[in-house]
């Protein structure tokens, strides 16, 4: 029996021709991310922030003027709910969700045992990192847009809506102010890209997703605490959280783009450094999960 089958002519499958990398795996990655109940739970929690703010203000009829930026303006113009909610969620809630998604990116695959099958499929290791990062960036955008959009909708529902007076004193139409809200959401997303790269790197270090998530969130908090201390002032412009709340420039007429540009440059630096670290770690790592 043995001689028979080893003598059988080997009918080799012709090696498939190389094809340019398609979008299939990226689409599949988004599918996996957005088909998880966890992702939707996080987005729902984020959407609840502006709703809670709006309902609280509506019920207390304005409050006493204390609280986060824009809060006092909400009663006059519902379009400020979205911006207020973004300000509220930037320090903790958004980094929390970004930490969960990026910390899970590689470590979560290792934990479910899918990492070895993806690599054998084969997804190149670099391609896997790039796709994971791109999906995390899409999540950042989805998260901030969720906050902004939920804020705008609940604002329209509960408060009067009208032309918005900008910080520069000019007044813009409702339509333009909606566009500016989305622009701010884009700015906040941009600010989260550096943290995403850090999360991806941490995720390559471990097979325990919860550890990677927690570490990423802790780092975002440490960065903000350092940003508050006057003793570390020299460090402040290098912290990825330095520009997080500086979107007021987008509320001037004409728009002042300098902080947008500086933020983009800083985040790009973080992406380059931590992307390289993640690559250095993951490209040669033994996958034993």
């Amino acid at each position: 029996m043995s001689s028979e089958s080893s003598a059988a002519p080997s009918v080799l499958v012709a090696r498939r021709p190389r094809r340019a990398v398609g979008w299939g795996f990226f689409v599949s990655e988004l599918g996996v991310l957005f088909r998880r109940r966890r992702t939707w739970a996080m987005m729902a929690a984020l959407a609840a922030i502006p709703i809670l703010i709006a309902v609280a203000i509506r019920l207390t009829d304005g409050g006493d003027g204390r609280g986060p930026a824009f809060l006092d303006r909400i009663t006059q113009n519902g379009l400020f709910v979205g911006m207020t909610a973004l300000v509220v969620s930037i320090p903790l809630f958004l980094p929390l969700t970004v930490g969960v998604v990026t910390g899970d990116s590689i470590a979560g695959e290792a934990n479910t045992g899918t990492l070895r099958y993806l690599l054998v499929s084969p997804v190149g290791r670099i391609r896997l990192l790039v796709v994971k990062y791109a999906a995390a960036a899409v999540f950042c955008l989805a998260a901030t847009v969720t906050v902004a959009l939920a804020g705008i909708l609940i604002g329209i529902a509960l408060f009067p809506v009208g032309p918005v007076t900008l910080l520069s004193g000019d007044s813009v139409s409702v339509g333009e102010s909606l566009l500016r809200s989305l622009l701010i959401a884009g700015y906040v997303t941009l600010g989260l890209l550096g943290l995403s790269a850090i999360g991806l790197f941490i995720s390559t270090l471990t097979d325990a997703p919860v550890g990677a998530m927690a570490a990423t969130v802790v780092i975002s908090i440490v960065s903000q605490v350092l940003g508050q201390l006057s003793q570390t002032e020299w460090l402040h412009p290098w912290l990825f959280s330095y520009y997080w709340l500086d979107f007021a420039d987008l509320l001037r007429q004409p728009i002042e783009w300098s902080s947008f540009g500086a933020n983009a440059l800083l985040q790009l630096g973080y992406v380059a450094v931590f992307g390289a670290l993640a690559y250095g770690r993951f490209a040669s790592k033994d996958v034993l999960s």
């Binding site: 498939r16 190389r18 990398v21 795996f25 599949s28 599918g31 996996v32 088909r35 099958y117 997804v123």
Partner: peptide, 17 residues
């Protein structure tokens, strides 16, 4: 959290070829 089919589709998509 995915069905058997969805899991296989994902691994198939992972093969860029």
């Amino acid at each position: 959290f995915l069905s058997g089919t969805a899991n296989l589709r994902r691994l198939d998509a992972a093969d860029g070829f």
